[in-house]
């Protein structure tokens, strides 16, 4: 069984727990995937276009931006590997939502593990807006079953009608 765990920089522990639920499956291959998001760089390029400037790739600062992104991604994968040392790490570049489903197809994943959205210290939330656009896209377009790994939110229950 091939499990693809999507890391967003805030969910290494949750992914570790979720992946271990499949420990009984043999043979088991776990892939840790993170994506270098090109969205912000493209947004900067579009702003540059508005100010009649050439795209970022001709600027020296792009090297610094790429180096910082790469370092951050390696840290994210490292944190994942600390929880799942047997896993293989995958790094892709592009729009996260597209790269996640394409990587799952390329890697022939049997299950995708994904969190609803990156959590930066805010308490967990439930409801229609609790799934971010990346996870929503993956749920809509995944080539295999998807397991949505929610943070524990027992204190929010019971939900009243």
């Amino acid at each position: 069984m091939k499990i693809l765990a999507c890391l967003d920089g805030t969910n290494a522990e949750a992914m570790g727990h979720a992946a271990r639920m499949f420990a009984g499956a043999q043979p088991l291959t776990i892939g840790l995937l993170t994506v270098m998001d090109v969205g912000p760089r493209k947004a900067i390029d579009r702003t540059r276009e508005r100010f009649w400037r050439p795209p970022m790739h001709r600027q020296p600062v792009i090297q610094e931006m790429l180096a910082a992104e790469k370092e951050a991604c390696q840290d994210i994968l490292k944190a994942g590997l600390e929880r799942l040392p047997e896993a293989e790490s995958l790094l892709r570049q592009g729009y996260p939502e597209l790269e996640l489903v394409n990587a799952a197809a390329d890697w022939k994943a049997d299950v995708i593990l994904i969190c609803p959205r990156a959590e930066y210290g805010a308490p967990p939330s439930l409801g229609p807006h609790s799934v971010g656009h990346v996870a929503r896209f993956v749920l809509d377009h995944a080539p295999c079953p998807v397991m949505l790994v929610r943070p524990p939110a027992g204190e929010l229950f019971p939900i009243k009608g």
Binding site: T47, R48, F51, E64, A68
Partner: peptide, 24 residues
């Protein structure tokens, strides 16, 4: 601000492991 500060702040917040979009 739009052309020079933005990429500098982008590098800074990426290094600080913060979400990029709000700062961008």
């Amino acid at each position: 601000t739009a052309l020079i500060l933005t990429p500098i702040v982008y590098v800074l917040v990426t290094k600080l492991r913060l979400p990029v979009l709000p700062y961008l």
